[in-house]
Write a protein that binds this DNA or RNA. Structure first.
Lengths: 339, 339
DNA sequence: GTGAAAGCGCTAACAC
DNA sequence: GTGTTAGCGCTTTCAC
């Protein structure tokens, strides 16, 4: 496949019999170029169908206008919606998005980071794998001067801008809703230990119990992965207890759905006998029956804000770090109706 | 944010007291460089933590190692899985993927294409919007020499490589399954007219009817959009008919689910009174109850094959066009059990 | 307000 | 097998 000649600023310059410098300036709206000249250039550029060569611009300016995204998966509702948000603001500001999928493998994440050609990226948006405990590789990149913004799964130790949903308050609200609906023995099937949002949701759960004078029972708190399968396993474990809970608050909708499937198989009436709440508002939560009460995460908003923040870091020198927390909202459905 | 100095081949050359050309050759495994020299260079590069500057490489070679993806959404199972497949092979072959989301708007698609800086992209993977009838903008890009591979929603008129699932045979199999399970009055809620895979699935449906000597009834074939909402509307329309069908074959799982929701609201027993089949194998189809019988699309495979094909087009000159069709497989669940 | 020219990091003739 | 050098398309001093 032969790459043919595209029209360059040189061609425009030749056509108009002016210098490439002037063309370049006119095209970029620099303020030291004659109005008339600028218009001529713009017109010629449009007419000749000129397209800037980003490689050349990147090389000359040391900028690429590319933003990297490092993410465990893209095949779930939350992540794909975040990416959609990122994409929207990136596109509108003239940045390209380059996607790196880790498959939730820390090794893959490390390998991606280590092989990253940072010169090709103006900045990085990242949400870590669920098992990654070390973050030296990110710290290194940051120290070398590449702006990084974390979202959703953030690292506590790293000093960067971060954007998250309000995990603590969302969970608190979930417990509150359960209590108000008559449930008293609330279990929490949580995410993997160590991850910050797992921790925050757990804290919100505990705060909720405390607020309503409910006791904390160790055996009603189970940590495992985020998958539907993990939700199933956790639910089974809970059902084997002597003293069973009367409601389940899951760290995400996937686990909540896994738990519901187990309940259905065991003919335990969801809502009436056992309340279930999720977190995310995955479209599945509206489809499953009974429908799942959940805490909706502002995924699109998270994507947009992350990208806006990153672009600020890229374009403004010494832009101060920000930690953005976006509120969630509760979506009440059938799985928490006791009667 | 100041971009600082990265180590370049010049630095390596200076350190080793050889020329940049030799360094460049050694790094690229070109075959006219002394084994010993190469090793020295590689070692120095590793030790100095050298990273190639893709902008420079792109500029010098007229290549960017970027692949663009143009896609309506990424927030559904099928598309996000395709992208995952694309990403896997792209990453393994050293290509970046750059994402452009059209939101299924033809205007947006056009604007993306027109503003695309092709010099920044070695090739393009595209699935069109559902309403895009014109394809001149794609033809133009192709004519200008940029390799394009279409997948899923392809344009008939355009001469490029294409990769699709076997829509025709999948639909035929769906109808066959319905007939074998005792349904005789099979309706088809289809996608928008004009889209090729809508057409293929319709043809497969018609062929299935014919094969089993079932009559074609105009009013049992409804064209509309791909959303759950459209599925609802189509189902309602079908229920208003004097002669109602006894089974629904939907062009995708989203519409099938919309239809199921209407049936549930109307207390019509899914399976027993009305069979329902989808197409895709979206995870939701396993969650909804009764679970949805469907035709599974090889989404990951489609992504991988598309990307492999595109890379061949990029790297081999005069690589001949290919049209790849990947088989689907039926997943039998509860929604087509008549008793 | 505009032009000449150097240079961003790399590749690819072309010489030797 | 290795070095020299021009040049990819653009930005950016520095003159004028």
């Amino acid at each position: 496949m032969l790459k043919h000649h595209f029209v360059t600023i040189k061609d425009i310059a030749k056509t108009l019999d002016i210098s490439v410098a002037t063309v370049s300036r006119a095209l970029r709206n620099t303020f030291d170029v004659n109005q008339e000249t600028r218009e001529k250039v713009l017109e010629a550029a449009a007419q000749m169908n000129y397209r800037p060569n980003y490689n050349a611009i990147g090389l000359a300016k040391g900028r690429s206008h590319n933003i990297g995204i490092i993410i465990p998966f893209i095949t779930n509702y939350y992540f794909s919606t975040v990416i959609t948000g990122i994409q929207e603001v990136a596109f509108s500001k003239g940045y390209n998005i380059i996607l790196f999928v880790t498959n939730d493998s820390p090794e893959r994440e490390l390998s991606i980071i280590q092989n990253l050609s940072i010169s090709n990226l103006d900045g990085l948006l990242v949400t870590t794998t669920s098992a990654s405990d070390s973050c030296g590789h990110f710290q290194k990149i940051i120290n070398e001067g590449t702006p990084v913004v974390f979202f959703d799964r953030v690292h506590t130790k790293i000093k960067t801008s971060k954007v998250m949903q309000d995990d603590f308050y969302g969970s608190l609200e979930a417990v509150q809703h359960l209590v108000e609906n008559g449930y008293k023995k609330i279990a929490h099937i949580a995410g993997p230990k160590g991850l910050i949002f797992t921790e925050r949701r757990l804290q919100g759960y505990l705060a909720g119990l405390q607020k309503h004078g409910l006791p904390v029972r160790e055996e009603w708190i189970i940590h495992s992965g985020f998958s539907q399968e993990c939700g199933r396993a956790d639910m089974l474990q809970l059902l084997n207890l002597d003293e069973k809970p009367d409601a389940i608050f899951a760290v995400n909708d996937g686990k909540a759905i896994g738990a519901m499937l187990v309940l259905k198989e065991n003919k335990i009436a969801i809502g009436k006998e056992m309340g279930v709440m999720g977190f995310t508002n995955d479209p599945m939560s509206a489809i499953i029956s009974p429908s799942l009460t959940t805490i909706a995460e502002p995924a699109l908003e998270i994507g947009k804000r992350s990208c806006e923040l990153l672009i600020k870091h890229i374009t403004k020198k010494n832009f101060i770090l920000e930690e953005v927390i976006i509120p969630c909202r509760i979506i009440v459905r059938e799985s928490t109706k006791i009667s």
